[in-house]
């Protein structure tokens, strides 16, 4: 495993409150470039909440209050002069349920690049769509039906379409919130292979319920429990030789 030490995202003392509920307790974490980082832990442990902090999706929830820093490229994304729209443009996100827009496959991919002015309508846009779909491993399945609705695809295809849509705007980081939990094993396998492919170009952070999945794809794994980051280390370490008792209990299936 390549030992890259360049830090992509540095989270420093991140606290999050839902109203009176203190949901994340002083998280410190460095996420590395071109690696897959898995966030694991029992439901309600705050792993998804933490993920959403990284592209400021939590801003959409009115009762949420966030303290601490999320530093990307030497800039705290919660600084006053940072536009959350610009943050989300650089930090893409794939959701648990595949959620393609009720538009054609082509429009699904082209929508964001066109709005961002990354490409113009015409052949350059066609190329970008093709490139993104190829990267997402979907091109061969859909190249003859780009104008059919994205919602007509199977679940696994839809999820890869969502990934294609995300990488079409060339983000630095891709956040994935349990991207395969709604999919069948074969689709899951395809997505996992795709993730390993994509980490050459992107830093990927994945929330997963499935420990085997973390074991299969992740370079680094972070174990969350009740809003605390219990342990964060290389995946092998977490699974074979965890430092904390709680981690071991979880890994060995004593709760979760």
């Amino acid at each position: 495993m390549s030992q890259k030490n360049s830090t992509k995202i540095s989270v420093q003392n991140l606290n999050l409150h839902y109203g009176d509920n203190h949901a994340l307790h002083g998280i410190d974490m460095d996420i590395h470039t071109n690696q897959i980082t898995a966030l694991i832990g029992p439901s309600g442990c705050g792993k998804s909440t933490f993920l959403r902090c990284l592209n400021r999706m939590n801003d959409l929830i009115k009762s949420v209050r966030i303290e601490g820093k999320v530093i990307i490229d030497n800039k705290n994304i919660y600084d006053k002069d940072v536009d959350e729209v610009a943050v989300r443009k650089r930090i893409g996100m794939v959701f648990q349920q595949p959620n393609p827009f009720p538009k054609s496959i082509y429009e699904n991919v082209a929508y964001a690049p066109l709005k961002h002015g990354i490409t113009q309508k015409g052949s350059t846009c066609d190329e970008l769509v093709e490139k993104s779909l190829i990267q997402a491993g979907l091109w061969n399945e859909v190249k003859d039906k780009l104008s059919t609705p994205g919602t007509s695809l199977s679940g696994g295809q839809q999820q890869r379409l969502c990934i294609a849509r995300t990488i079409a705007i060339s983000p630095d980081v891709i956040l994935m919130d349990e991207p395969t939990s709604a999919l069948d094993p074969i689709s899951t396998e395809k997505i996992e292979a795709l993730m390993l492919e994509l980490k050459q170009q992107y830093s990927i952070i994945i929330v997963t319920h499935n420990m085997q999945q973390a074991g299969r794809v992740a370079d680094m794994t972070a174990f969350f429990h009740l809003g605390d980051l219990i342990e964060y280390a290389e995946t092998e370490t977490i699974f074979i030789n965890p430092a904390k008792q709680k981690t071991e209990d979880y890994i060995t299936g004593r709760y979760g």
Binding site: V87, K89, F95, Q97, F101, Y111, T166
Partner: peptide, 19 residues
Amino acid sequence: SQRKASLALGMTQGETISS
């Protein structure tokens, strides 16, 4: 989920609603 998907792509709320 449609709104979230669009916002996560770096769209403004106005663009999300209108597009």
